[in-house]
C-alpha cells in the first residue's frame, strides 16, 4: 500500500493551489468548520469531526445561473450556460467518506433520464480527496445506512490517518490515480496495513433496509404527527444535507436583462407544493416531515436504488428544534409497531 507523510501531503496541496486550481478544504470560520477556498494551506484544519455544511455546493451550488437574457434594440440575446461550458477546475480536500458517498448519490440522481448538464460539468472538473474518520460523535450513523468511516465510495483518493503523521492512500478512480502519479516521488510504499484499526467505531442503530420496509406501511400512521411537533419548518436540515437536491427556478432581473436561477429549496416549506388554487397536497408540517423521511428512505431506494441519507448527522447538529434523525428513525420502528398494535386492539 502507499502512504504519504503529513508534510508531503501539504506540499501536494500547496502545489495544487500554486497551479491555479481551486482547492476547497475544511477551514474555521466563526468558530465553525466549513469547506472554503484555500489561499494558504496552513489554514486547513484536520481536527474536525464534520463540517457544518456539506460539500455538495461544489457540484450543486446554492444558486446556479441557468441562463442570462438581454434585450438590445428590441432583440433578445440568450446565453444558455448548460451548453458548451466547462466546470471550474477544483480539488476538494478533507471531505468525509459520507460526503463523498453523498456526492456520488447526487451524481446518480442528476444523471437519471435527462442528465443534468450543470451538475455534470462541475463533476467532471472536480477531484475529491477524502479523509477517513478516526473520530465521530453521537450524531454520526453512517453504518446504519450502509456506509462506514473508511468507505472509499465516491472519493477519487481516500486518506486514512495512521501513526507517525502519515496517511494510508487509496485511489478508487482513474482521476485519483492520475493525481497520485503526478506526485509519485512524494509517496512511499508500505506493507499490508490494517486500515480498520485506525478508524472510529460507529455503532449501527438501525437498518436502512428495515426502515424502508417499515415506511411502505407507515403512510397513514399517526406517528408522523408526534414526530413532527417540534419541527418549525426552517429547512436547515435540507440546507446542510449532502443528498438533498430539491430546487426552485426563479428569474432575477428586469425587462432589460437578467438571469434565470436555480436555487436550493426544501420540502419543509409549505410553499414548496402549494397549488395556485390554494390547495396543498402536503398541507401540514407532519405531512412534510413524512415526505422528507419517506423520500430519503423509501421512495429513493424504490425508484433509483439509492439511499437518500449518508448518516453524516448534520441535520441533527443543525436543527434549532433539536430533532435528531438517528433517534427518530430508531424510535420510528418502535412507535410504528406500537401504534399498529394499538390500532389493532382498539380499532
Amino acid at each position: 500500500m502507499e502512504v504519504i507523510t503529513h508534510d508531503n501531503l501539504l506540499i501536494i496541496l500547496k502545489s495544487i493551489v500554486d497551479s491555479g486550481k481551486e482547492l476547497y478544504a475544511p477551514q474555521r470560520k466563526a468558530g465553525k468548520t466549513f469547506f472554503l477556498s484555500v489561499k494558504d494551506v496552513a489554514s486547513i484544519v484536520f481536527d474536525y469531526v464534520q463540517t457544518t455544511e456539506s460539500p455538495k455546493e461544489l457540484l450543486f451550488p446554492k444558486v446556479e445561473r441557468m441562463l442570462s437574457y438581454k434585450f438590445t434594440d428590441g432583440k433578445i440575446q440568450v446565453t444558455d450556460y448548460s451548453q458548451g461550458q466547462e466546470g471550474p477546475n477544483r480539488v476538494l480536500f478533507g471531505s468525509r467518506p459520507c460526503d463523498a458517498i453523498g456526492m456520488k448519490t447526487l451524481a446518480e440522481f442528476f444523471r437519471q433520464d435527462m442528465p443534468d448538464a450543470f451538475f455534470q460539468q462541475r463533476q467532471d472538473a472536480l477531484t475529491i480527496i477524502s479523509m477517513s474518520c478516526v473520530r465521530s460523535d453521537e450524531n454520526c450513523f453512517c453504518t446504519s445506512v450502509g456506509a462506514g468511516p473508511g468507505d472509499s465510495t465516491g472519493s477519487d483518493i481516500l486518506l486514512t490517518p495512521i501513526e507517525d503523521s502519515r496517511y494510508l492512500v487509496e485511489c478508487p478512480t482513474e482521476k485519483g490515480k492520475t493525481l497520485v502519479e503526478s506526485y509519485k516521488e512524494l509517496f512511499e510504499q508500505t506493507g499490508a496495513a490494517d486500515k480498520e484499526k485506525y478508524l472510529t467505531k460507529i455503532q449501527q442503530t438501525f437498518s436502512h433496509v428495515g426502515i424502508a420496509r417499515m415506511l411502505s406501511k407507515a403512510f397513514d400512521n399517526p406517528v408522523w404527527n408526534e414526530a413532527s411537533l417540534r419541527c418549525i419548518g426552517c429547512g436547515a436540515c435540507a440546507y446542510v444535507c449532502p443528498v438533498c437536491s430539491c430546487f426552485d427556478i426563479q428569474d432575477e432581473g428586469n425587462n432589460k436583462k437578467g438571469d434565470r436561477l436555480r436555487c436550493w429549496d426544501s420540502c419543509a416549506f409549505a410553499l414548496f407544493t402549494l397549488h395556485t388554487s390554494g390547495h396543498n397536497p402536503r398541507p401540514t408540517q407532519s405531512t412534510r416531515w413524512r415526505q422528507r423521511v419517506t423520500h430519503k428512505f423509501a421512495y429513493m431506494p424504490e425508484r433509483y436504488d439509492l439511499v437518500g441519507c449518508v448518516g453524516c448527522g448534520r441535520c441533527s447538529r443543525s436543527c434549532p428544534a433539536d430533532m435528531n434523525l438517528k433517534e427518530e428513525l430508531a424510535e420510528l420502528g418502535h412507535s410504528l409497531e406500537e401504534v399498529s398494535q394499538r390500532i389493532e386492539e382498539h380499532p
Binding site: 443534468d116 430539491c246 430546487f247 426552485d248 420540502c267 397549488h275 415526505q291 423520500h295
Partner: peptide
Amino acid sequence: LENRMKCGVGKCGRCNVGS
C-alpha cells in the same frame, strides 16, 4: 394531476406522489 412543478423533468422534487 396538477401538482406544482418547476423543472418538468423529475429533478426539482416537488411534484412527487410517493415515488
